[in-house]
Design a protein around this nucleic acid. Structure first.
Length: 628
RNA sequence: GCUCUUGUAGCUCAGGGGUAGAGCACUUCCUUGGUAAGGAAGAGGUCACGGGUUCAAAUCCCGUCAAGAGCUCCA
């Protein structure tokens, strides 16, 4: 990670552009550091920047901060705020700063027996020509480029939020520090609003809703990061598959079906093994091989070595679908007239994610991509990319997900790690750029973010807690066609190499549904709802009438149930509301006589009585059009 | 993988060195009720797992597994 320093250190320009809120938060971080220093004088501080949600300060000290300490810290902070200390900037020479740091005076309230270790390190990172400043508030002095608010009294509304650990400078080889997170706002009202928003976000969390609505399960007995889709979740998933399938057919894709494992040699050819072995499930060795090794008294290490060297063979749970699709492409002779060949599959892949990274449906070890591989000529590349983006656009628009970010990953001009010819890259990057701009949405070009095998476009959305997740992706690949020696016969009757595009509009079904649950807070549009209509007879006397309506709707393919439990309507409604069922139909004496149903919508409430057929037509139309 | 926190009934959680509690859900009965909870009775738990300390462990200690937050990673 050569650019760690750049990531951590903001330039002076960036600092001067700090917004008022960022400035306030950064100052509050100092106030917090002051408080922590008072409570635990051995505290050694590292970085303490503002963030999107607030601020943090990294600290190393003997005491382990727990949530029980937050109140104590806040109380000390309040004292500092009450004293209304001015933030004073003092420009010093490098030597002066170093002298203070050696005395342990930086990020501290007084001289100490120990040096301000991190600050000495930070000092070395400041370029020669840059001004070195120390900010003081009361007795707390800290090496800091600023800027700050005028006085500690300006930090009126704050809260210590959480504590976690972080590696110094984000390097896993460095010591771990305690990162104390806090947030700050102009005033108490805004702080209150923010905290309320966080509470609301928790209610949207897909893990919570997934459990409440019985959508999916991650079971210890099955394994970490392995999602079990329960019946209701499976309906949701199937609806999404049907939806995308319609559009795939329209765009001329061919569906294929391939197994979840393949020979190690296949992935050796593709380059996935052993290069990415540490992020895959361990290979499966053949029984005979294991037996043979055991008889020879050989170790697991020997086995691994043999598998890696290719001396013995085995199978791999596939980390990607492409090799299988490539083999399908290669099983036929292709003329330029056949291209583009578009092979699509809802393909399940397995990756060994680090255990600490797993979470809900958004980061898992087995997932299904709505994958496809397009084999085309250079000239077709642009149109094909456009087609892929069109698909992503349809998906996001149909689901009303407007809040996404488009990231175009380009190659790093200074690096030589990329495969393929520079002219090809230029062409592909230009095609991606053009395609991206056709979306009519801002996109970020990020040099150095391309994969080694080609440039890409990613669609990124945020979850309930504000974390960003990559969903859809379109990637150009020059590598695999080369490695597998893909060919087609051109007009000139000579053999040519096709270009490949990997693309997945949803990305992974698991992650997509996780994000979707949070997007809708469980209130899925009718076409996606596991149960679309629930019929609520007023009493058992009307169950028969309810059953008749049930039949009418079910025959139209509506997912409908009758609540024939021995409860009052109030209770039935409550239950249906909690299950976020879009439509509730109430049937009593009135409705039975007039062949009507009283319609209640989960958001609009009681919308009055309509004829059974009228309701049927309306709800069927709503489902067919996939209305939001 | 690392640091911290957590793990008690199907769910949400209380309790806490002397072999378990609430609400919801579930079962049965009564009730047949018009837009977010009708009533009664009942059933349900090796207190994540494995060790240790103790006369006694769900409770204290250690380890394992899992979850959450963050860091690192993500072809």
């Amino acid at each position: 990670m050569a650019d760690t320093d750049q990531k951590q250190r903001k330039t002076l320009d960036e600092r001067n552009q700090m917004s008022d809120l960022e400035r306030l938060r950064h100052s509050t971080a100092h106030v917090m550091a002051t408080a922590i220093s008072k409570l635990w004088p051995d505290a050694q501080f590292a970085y303490g920047p503002p963030t999107e949600q607030g601020f943090y300060y990294d600290v190393d000290m003997g005491h382990r901060i727990t949530p029980d300490d937050f109140e104590k810290i806040e109380a000390e902070m309040k004292k500092v705020v009450k004293e209304n200390q001015p933030f004073e900037k003092m420009v010093v020479s490098r030597d002066e700063a170093l002298t203070l740091a050696k005395k342990g005076r930086l990020a501290a309230l007084s001289d100490r027996d120990v040096e301000s270790t991190f600050k000495i390190d930070l000092l070395e990172e400041i370029p020669e020509d840059e001004e070195i400043s120390i900010y003081k508030n009361g007795d707390f002095w800290d090496l800091c480029a600023g800027p700050h608010v005028p006085r500690t009294g300006n930090c009126k509304a704050f809260k210590v939020m959480s504590v976690a650990s972080a590696f110094y400078k984000g390097d896993a080889n460095n010591p771990q520090l305690q990162r104390v997170y806090g947030t700050a706002f102009k005033n108490k009202t805004e702080l209150g609003e923010h905290l309320e928003q966080l509470e609301e976000a928790k209610l949207r969390d897909h893990r919570k809703i997934g459990k409440e609505l019985n959508l999916f399960l991650i079971d210890e007995a099955v394994g970490q990061g392995l999602v079990l889709w329960k019946p209701k979740g499976a309906i949701l998933r199937q609806q999404l598959l049907d939806f995308i399938l319609e559009h795939l057919n329209r765009q001329g894709y061919s569906q294929v079906v391939t197994p979840h494992i393949g020979k190690l040699d296949l992935f050796r050819t593709s380059g996935h093994y052993p290069y990415y072995a540490e992020s895959q499930f361990p290979p499966l060795a053949e029984r005979e091989v294991l037996k043979g090794l055991a008889e020879e008294g050989r170790s697991c290490g020997d086995l691994m070595q043999q598998l890696e060297s290719g001396e013995t063979t085995g199978f791999l749970l596939r980390p990607m679908n492409c090799p299988h699709h490539i083999r399908i492409y290669q099983s036929d002779h292709h003329s330029y007239r056949d291209l583009p060949v578009r092979l699509a599959e809802f393909g399940t892949v397995y990756r060994w994610e680090q255990s600490g990274e797993l979470g809900g449906m958004t980061r898992v070890r087995g997932f299904t991509q709505d994958d496809a591989h397009i084999f085309c000529t250079e000239d077709q590349l642009k149109d094909e990319i456009m087609g892929c983006l069109e698909l992503v656009k349809i998906v996001l628009e149909t689901l009303g997900m407007e809040d996404y970010r488009v990231r175009v990953g380009l190659r790093d001009p200074d690096s030589t790690k990329y495969v393929g010819e520079p002219e090809q890259w230029d062409k592909a990057e230009e095609a991606l750029r053009e395609a991206a701009s056709s979306l009519g949405k801002d996109f970020a070009e990020e040099p150095g973010e391309a994969a080694f095998y080609g440039p890409k476009i990613d669609f990124v959305v945020k979850d309930a807690i504000g974390r960003e997740w990559q969903l859809g992706t379109v990637q150009v690949d020059y590598n695999l066609p080369e490695r597998f020696g893909l060919e087609y016969v051109g007009k000139d009757n000579a053999s040519h190499r096709p270009v490949m595009i990997h693309r997945a509009p949803f990305g992974s079904l698991e992650r997509f549904v996780g994000v979707l649950i949070e997007h809708f807070a469980g209130k899925f549009p009718t076409w996606l709802s596991p149960e679309q209509v629930r019929i609520l007879p007023i009493s058992e006397k009307f169950v028969e009438a309810a059953d008749e309506v049930h039949k009418v709707l079910r025959d139209e393919g509506v997912r409908v149930k009758v609540d024939d439990t021995n409860e009052k309507v109030g209770a039935k409604i409550r239950l249906a509301q909690l299950e976020r069922i879009p439509y509730m139909l109430i049937i009593g004496a009135k409705e039975q006589e007039s062949n009507q149903v009283s319609v209640r919508h989960r958001d609009r409430g009681d919308v009055g009585a309509v004829g059974v057929d009228e309701f049927k037509n309306q709800v069927v139309a709503e489902i067919r059009s996939r209305s939001l």
